[in-house]
């Protein structure tokens, strides 16, 4: 029955100091939809909770010169209501909006989804495919890293003591580009991805892919960036042969586990299936 303190500072530097100086386990809280559940089942016993939602900028979406800055604690619901963001990065928004239910959407954030560091999280593959950057505040100032550099293992991140994510930046959407995300779950909602796949592509005027990024979730300890899959797309239109190559490249990198949610064999096959389906949507959104 050790104590638990809760605090909601109003500045980034205050939050950093609180996190850095706590002797016990300090946890950042955004929506709390992972954190509180883990505390309830006894998996986490923090001594300090630092709620970031009172810090200006942590909630909200700003468009700056075509780039989008999304406060780290912004809820999925707010993202889904932002017409500009939905138009530019539909894949990122649909991935985020898949999280939980209407109630969970009112709270769940990108930062929490990423830093919970679950292999099956929905938004990270879409964020990675989109080339999203995480802005991190900490005792030594601010740093910016690509989203794929945050999660290092299930439940672990590269954030140091006293560090937390303040915002995400999505690049200016290129002409003739499109992104998409799909996950596979046995039901239609309220489930955790057996496989997730995010793809962003840019085409030239002739419809040939000139840039691509492919990311898979739930098939390895962390989200994967599948360079071979991107290479299969670049320089090509989405022919059956290209789709087959994409499928094979995605299957080749999968290192999933056998568990109650899916077998190695099944997850690997479905990764290829999803990649084909996601690529088709991304190409279509890019104007193919």
């Amino acid at each position: 029955m050790s104590g638990l303190s809760y605090t909601a500072p109003s500045t980034i530097s205050e939050a950093v100091a609180l996190l850095a100086n706590e002797a016990g386990l300090a946890k950042v809280m955004s929506g709390g939809t992972d954190l509180l559940v883990q505390m309830k089942i006894g998996r986490l016993k923090p001594s300090l909770i630092v709620d970031t939602k009172k810090i200006p900028g942590m909630i909200g979406i700003r468009e700056i010169g075509g780039c989008f800055v999304i406060g780290a604690a912004t809820s999925g619901a707010l993202m889904g209501e932002h017409a500009g963001l939905v138009a530019a990065w539909p894949g990122v928004v649909e991935a985020t909006n898949l999280i939980g239910s209407t109630q969970v959407q009112g709270r769940a954030s990108l930062a929490g989804n990423l830093c919970n560091a679950s292999p099956g999280a929905d938004s990270p593959p879409a964020m990675i495919a989109a080339g999203a950057i995480a802005v991190i505040a900490g005792p030594n100032g601010t740093r910016e890293v690509p989203v794929e550099a945050i999660v290092t293992a299930p439940g672990r991140t590269s954030l140091g003591k006293g560090e937390f994510i303040t915002e995400f930046r999505l690049p200016k959407k290129a002409a003739r580009s499109g992104d998409a995300y799909l996950r596979f779950i046995p039901r239609t909602e309220m489930d955790i991805a057996v496989v997730g796949c995010g793809i962003a592509v840019t085409l030239d005027a002739a419809g040939v892919c000139v840039a691509a990024k492919v990311s898979l979730g739930a098939v390895a300890p962390t989200q994967l960036v599948v360079a071979g899959a991107a290479a299969a797309l670049i320089g090509n239109k989405l022919t059956d042969a290209v789709l087959a190559k994409l499928d094979a490249e995605c299957q080749a990198v999968c290192k999933p586990i056998n568990d109650k949610r899916g077998t190695i064999e099944y997850r690997t096959k479905v990764a290829g299936v999803l990649a084909r389906r996601v690529a088709a949507i991304a190409f279509q959104r890019a104007g193919a």
């Binding site: 046995p186 039901r187 239609t188 909602e189 309220m190 489930d191 955790i192 109650k260 949610r261």
Partner: peptide, 16 residues
């Protein structure tokens, strides 16, 4: 038992 909760013991949800 490896799935003693509604996340992994999958009853149908309305949208199913």
């Amino acid at each position: 038992m490896d799935n003693a909760g509604f996340l992994d013991y999958r009853v149908p949800v309305a949208s199913d």
